[in-house]
Design a binder for these strands. Structure first.
Length: 106
DNA sequence: GCATTGACTAGGG
DNA sequence: GCCCTAGCCAATG
């Protein structure tokens, strides 16, 4: 680390890193936790440009429990989610409402 | 500094 | 339930 990212990017990465095992959050939730509820697009852009291995980016999914996308292999993202006890079907998390992690304000 | 793009979201048909 | 449109933020050329 040491790479000086934008304050928003750094905040987003911190939020994603706080997502516990077996939980998932939407881009909107992460964006809202980063003080930018309308920056859901920017969150996806940050994850794409700053996909760090220290950040469980696979726990960040789109709304409605949809997986959305992933850097490299989307299938890997699905495998990771299923590996955490999440039921993924048709590119969506069935128990999304149950495993949805409520991001707290910072 | 403007235009384009992206792992998005919500709404309408 | 799917496709298209409009709107938002940040990074890149």
């Amino acid at each position: 680390m040491g790479k000086k990212r934008s304050d928003f990017a750094s905040q987003v990465l911190t939020i994603v890193r706080r997502i516990p095992y077996g939980r998932v959050a939407t881009y909107g939730d992460v964006a809202a936790a980063a003080r930018r509820p309308l920056a859901h697009r920017a969150v996806g852009n940050i994850m794409r440009t700053c996909h760090d291995t220290s950040v469980p980016c696979h726990r960040v999914i789109a709304a409605e429990g949809k997986l959305g996308g992933y850097a490299g292999d989307l299938q890997r993202k699905r495998s990771l989610l299923m590996g955490e006890g999440l039921a993924v079907s048709a590119g969506k998390v069935r128990n999304f409402a149950e495993v949805r992690w409520k991001a707290k304000k910072n």
